[in-house]
Design a protein around this nucleic acid. Structure first.
Length: 575
RNA sequence: GGGGCUGUAGCUCAGUUGGAUAGAGCAGCGACCUUCUAAGUCGUUGGUCGCCCGUUCGAGUCGGGCCAGCCCCGCCA
């Protein structure tokens, strides 16, 4: 089913072509900026030039010659100099938009443009034996939103959690466990303990070469499949995933697979050999396998001189595996901007090797998180913020606000609202702006309950639901409606914006930019806020108008909830 | 030295096939709760779109050159 604006555009295009005065390939319609009081414009500059006439003359001639369908979505047609402007017909807009939202419900905004395409999304990727921190939250939250958006667009999406469960540092993890024992506890607390003993061991090893050598030995035992090393490693993987899962559950994150780096260990020799055979890489005198001067990019390694592999090696193997296993049309990496060069090199290498001939490879780069003093967050600086404590803190602050604003709610509901609001604030903080910008962790901004904030969006939804609940209680919800009565300017503005959700979802997918949907949600909430002030619903002048406004409120609630759901934000019924 | 990202109001950000008068929020000032949730709404203050040049009917948007901030550039991930 075409969305309303697509129908409108098609209708206008058909009418323009039917005049016989302008060929279809010269018709480029534009959506004017919000400050321009029209809904669709035909800037006639190019067409006029091609036809050898003046733009204002062409606009006027077309306006005179146009015949629009009498029952269509187009209302008035006007000219403004060289611009030929089309406005939506308020009554028919209301009927079309609300009917479509009613018919599609929780799927309003969903479409099928991605049908038949398969997308692997690589996101989250926590490191085993470490807590998830703000660096992982960006990948996790942006990645899940992109998964949601592309599923809504009809793509078959496969999420893959590329766990950092391999590499040299595991020798230190295992050696420290051997020396200091296995910490016990729940969630991130036990991981914190493990991190601490890792740090102690690493520090001691700097002074004591024997400890360093011992860690190297554990690393080797692990790579060779030694049962004891393997068992300890598995224990740390399970521990990490348990803790991560608690965070994922709260964030509405569900990742289909977790093929960690370790999974690719058996495929690495083949990858190195293939690169050598192909000639894209060579083995230098010291033994290292080198890729040089690929697409003017800096040299990098596929194998260390001591025979060890690198994350590049595993990443090549990962693409090779994903292509064979999933036959994806797209692979999307939700990885920080500092790794941009690495991924460009990776993509260039697999292209050269012929591993991903028909797969589009995309790096969705996100910026670095800074603290309020402008310092990057790092364990070493001591300003690191961990995901679980971040969520807990946000929820407890939200709880205080709920206590103050809605003391009448039952305790269990207060807690549920606080969880939705607190977690929503953290999620929204990562989704309200373009991911490639750097982000400042600003508690005031993040936990704001006004302006462009998750809380404001949730509040707007709750207000809709509140009206609908009252209507259901007094029985007025059952009245027959007359949607064509919705012609108040604030109603029309709201309806026009509701009509834009499908387009916003498409754009968010195309640009890998969830903030497009966040923006849509925000504008929806604003337009609803104006409508709420200006148009009484339950006390509307007539039963028919009340019923029509109730339908608009219901449509707004549905659409807003859909938008929030794509972002992974819950929409409580009351708050 | 080479490369990437960013630069729009005091602060945080939108502005994407070039198009009309560059938009929000926060902060500041002022107004509105006997009417559906004031976590709201309205008004107002605030701009050399980093700088210069170019492309053209038209540039915040495209191209080139500078400037500033962050990041990356073989044996970590």
């Amino acid at each position: 089913m075409d969305d309303v604006l697509a129908q409108f555009t098609a209708e206008v295009t058909r009418a323009l072509v039917a005049t016989g005065q302008v060929p279809a390939d010269l018709i480029e319609l534009a959506t004017p900026k919000p400050n321009i009081p029209t809904d669709l414009a035909f800037p006639t500059f190019k067409a006029a030039k091609a036809l050898g006439t003046a733009p204002p003359a062409l606009a006027a001639a077309l306006a005179a010659a146009l015949t629009l369908p009498p029952d269509g979505l187009t209302g008035t047609v006007t000219t403004f100099g060289p611009f030929l402007n089309f406005s939506l017909h308020p009554e028919r807009l209301a009927v079309a938009v609300i009917s479509l939202i009613r018919a599609t419900g929780a799927h309003y905004g969903h479409q099928q443009i991605g049908a038949g395409r398969r997308m692997v999304v690589d996101y989250s990727a926590p490191n085993v034996a470490k807590r998830m921190h703000v660096g992982h939250i960006r990948s996790t939250i942006i990645g899940q939103a992109l998964v949601n958006v592309h599923r809504a667009l009809g793509y078959t999406v496969i999420g893959d959690n590329h766990l950092g469960d391999w590499g040299k540092q595991f020798g230190v993890v295992l050696a420290s466990v051997e020396r200091d024992g296995t910490p016990t506890g729940q969630g991130e607390a036990v991981l914190a303990a493990l991190e601490a003993q890792y740090a102690r061991y690493a520090a001691d090893a700097k002074a004591d070469p024997a400890l360093d050598e011992h860690a190297r030995l554990w690393s080797l035992r692990l790579e060779q499949g030694d049962p004891q090393a393997r068992a300890l490693w598995q224990w740390s993987v399970d521990l990490t995933m348990d803790a991560a899962q608690r965070n994922y559950d709260r964030l509405g994150v569900a990742i289909d697979h977790a093929y960690g780096e370790s999974f690719y260990e058996p495929m690495l020799a083949e990858v190195i050999q293939a690169a050598l055979d192909h000639g894209v890489a060579f083995r230098e005198a010291g033994g290292a396998v080198v890729v040089e001067a690929l697409d003017q990019m800096p040299t990098f390694l596929l194998q260390r001189s001591d025979g060890g592999t690198l994350y590049m090696t595993r990443d090549v193997a990962t693409i090779h595996f994903r292509v064979r296993e999933f036959q994806p049309t797209h692979i999307v990496y939700v990885v920080g901007e500092p790794q941009a060069l690495h991924l460009r090199q990776l993509f260039a290498l697999v292209r050269t090797m012929g591993y991903a001939k028909t797969t589009e490879l995309t790096h969705v780069a996100f910026g670095t998180v800074f603290d309020s003093a402008g310092q990057p967050l790092s364990t070493r600086r001591g300003n690191m913020v961990y995901l679980e404590t971040l969520l807990d803190d946000a929820v407890s602050r939200a709880r205080a606000v709920v206590e103050q604003k809605s003391p009448e709610l039952p305790a269990a509901e207060k807690q549920a609202v606080a969880e939705a609001v607190g977690v929503g604030a953290v999620v929204y903080n990562d989704l309200y702006q373009d991911p490639k910008r750097n982000l400042t962790l600003d508690w005031e901004r993040m936990l704001a309950t006004e302006g462009n904030s998750a809380t404001y969006l949730q509040y707007s939804h709750a207000r809709c639901r509140s009206i609908l609940r009252r209507a259901a209680e007094d029985g007025s919800a059952a009245q027959p409606d007359a949607l064509a009565l919705l012609i108040h300017p604030s109603e029309t503005r709201l309806l026009k914006h509701l009509a834009r959700l499908p387009e916003a979802v498409r754009e968010a997918g195309k640009r890998y930019a969830p903030f497009v949907i966040a923006d849509w949600c925000y504008t929806t909430a604003r337009e609803f806020g104006v409508f709420f002030e200006q148009c009484p619903v339950l006390k509307a002048e007539s039963p028919a108008l009340r019923a029509a406004r109730l339908a608009l409120v219901a449509a707004t609630a549905t659409a807003l909830k859909n938008g929030l759901s794509l972002l992974g934000i819950k929409a409580p019924e009351r708050m």
